[in-house]
Write a protein that binds this DNA or RNA. Structure first.
Lengths: 342, 342
DNA sequence: TATATTTGTTCAATCGATTGAACAAAAATA
DNA sequence: TATTTTTGTTCAATCGATTGAACAAATATA
């Protein structure tokens, strides 16, 4: 029952009266091996349920065909969808992925990088943790000769291929829409400025307000980790402030959900008294009452393009040109910001 | 800048005028190597930024110290929390994990198993996809000499270590509570009977009803995939049925959310006209309005115990005794079923 | 027929680390 | 001093697959 002996090319060679090297070449379709031998070898391989030993071939070839993917957390539609699409593309090209999560912690991220380097992945695809400001560890990846591609949360300073959306423009879409709904006092529950994407969203928010001739007092931009409790806390804070806003643009859906809870608990009419817009199009945004307007980041496209950027990079390691692919964001207008609908 | 040459024990040996084998033994604290040499070697290793080549040592030792974890989907608090805890315990014991998801698809699950076996993980920890009925692939894992431990979704037939909760008892907790709230007509939106845990929940539901002298007509047990849309569809169906239930026990939180949406859309008072209870304690259940009662599966404990069961197994591969660890479920009573509170 | 070319396979080294056996030097015992 | 024991290191094989070079046989060319 327990057929524990894994067969090797040696076994195949013994069965056919060949040498292991002939078998290896036959399996790899070497031009100097006769068709007849190739067929016989492949047949025998199936008979013996032969599985190539990944470790030995990776060791010999210096290539593991493994790609590490580091994301802040798996429990998010955006990230899990990106990973799913990365995997789809890479699998088709003979790569397998190893998915790890940093839990938004810098220390965990470093540990994951070390693990992946130890396992000798051919490359790493990552989206950086909120906490990360020190880029040393990412530089280490490159210095070891391992390829690196970033998506969504990436820093230009690293000078690697990157796929993301136009965060600056996203804020324009959001603010312009809120203005069209007659909102005059628009606050922004933001992510931390040290992260490029959040910095861009803040910049876009400010510029869009200015364009519309509206004020953006500094105390209406509140940075946080964008967790549920952050959204709750900050929304409460905004409600308690002397000049209460009439719209809030939240840089993340989960924090937007927290904000919505507080609004409902305080019997504030959404969107009439306070319009609300989130970011990322997490599935639950369409399920709340009222449903939450948000920005679609095209996670499937990001995943696909990231994987393709990676493949291009690994197939041309010496290529100097860096790919920066920026997708168009899409505003999804739902009940929480649509004053005409209700 | 790009220091691409990875150093090997050969390099260390060259620096110190030793042989590679002496270096290897020094690094592994072999008793026959002098203290002086060990210190010198370890120092040189740090100087040269030596990282052991995982591939070669795994090949030689026939052990990768890698563990594959297969879960139905990462985008679920329960599963991601279990994995997080598995990882925590295994990391402390020198193992790294590779997390993969089956997306509830049998074909994907088989593919993931093949990948993990190819990478030569030392073992696989899994929770089976909804679709899976054929256990051949899981038997293949064992037959290759790779350890296997299951959690939550597992089949006894496979005869491997298992960690889960007492699903039969969970249903008793749920039904008893609903009965205490004066519910008389309790329906069950169930998972598929071919999966053990859902079968147990159905069995518990029936027995608990019988115990309380209540009827359980067969058409009040409706099996499904427990996705959001399944919950919606089935709840609508129940509302349209001639004898409408006054309570619904849903075997999964996401389907419970769908059911709640339909109830609210139909202006049905929850819990007064219809009580609702879900399963798994996904975070969103505490965020809905009304919040959803549910069953806590102790994902942290499951993760920890699963990892420990795995370690015990891999350290005693010939041990015949199978571990079956069954945790106590905990009912979390929230607004959706608590008629006294409101 | 002699020589050059093509074809099919084997040989042997290699990837980097590990490990039991072998060996020489140092230390302990007789 | 001779012998045994201990200590520290080297030797050589191994894990399984890969690959350029070598080689013999078959085929083509002169």
């Amino acid at each position: 029952m327990e057929n524990k002996k894994k067969s090797t090319i040696k076994d195949i060679a013994a069965v056919l009266g060949l040498t292991p090297s002939a078998v290896s070449k036959a399996l790899n379709d070497h031009p100097r091996i006769s068709e007849k031998t190739k067929i016989a070898v492949k047949e025998a391989a199936i008979q013996l349920d032969y599985q190539p030993n990944y470790l030995s071939s990776a060791l010999r070839k210096g290539k593991s065909n493994l790609v590490g993917v580091i994301i802040p957390r798996v429990n998010s539609h955006f990230f899990s969808s990106v990973v799913e699409n990365i995997e789809k593309v890479l699998n088709l090209n003979g790569y397998n992925i190893i998915m790890t999560q940093s839990n938004e912690l810098y220390a965990k991220e470093c540990q994951e990088i070390d693990t992946l380097l130890k396992i000798q992945v051919d490359g790493i695809i990552a989206s950086m943790a909120n906490e990360t400001t020190d880029l040393e560890y990412y530089k280490k990846i490159k210095s070891k000769g391992t390829e690196l591609v970033l998506f969504d949360r990436g820093e230009e300073e690293l000078n690697v291929d990157y796929v993301g959306i136009d965060d600056y423009k996203s804020s324009h879409l959001v603010v312009d829409h809120l203005v069209s709904q007659n909102c005059k006092r628009i606050a922004h529950i933001a992510g931390f400025k040290h992260i490029r994407i959040y910095k861009e969203r803040i910049r876009g928010y400010k510029d869009a307000l200015e364009k519309s001739g509206l004020a953006a007092p500094e105390n209406w931009i509140i940075e946080s980790n964008l967790r549920l409790e952050d959204g709750r806390r900050i929304m409460q804070q905004l409600l308690d402030s002397p000049e209460r806003p009439d719209a809030v643009y939240v840089a993340g859906d989960i924090a937007a959900l927290g904000a919505l809870q507080v609004l409902l608990e305080n019997n504030i009419k959404v969107p009439e008294e306070m319009a609300l817009i989130g970011f990322s199009d997490e599935p639950f945004t369409s399920l709340t009452q009222p449903s939450i307007s948000t920005v679609n980041q095209h996670s499937d496209q990001i995943g696909k393009l990231t994987a393709e950027a990676f493949l291009e990079r690994i197939n041309n390691p010496k290529k100097k040109m860096i790919n920066r692919i920026i997708l168009e964001p899409e505003l999804i207008i739902r009940q929480s910001s649509n004053r005409n609908l209700k």
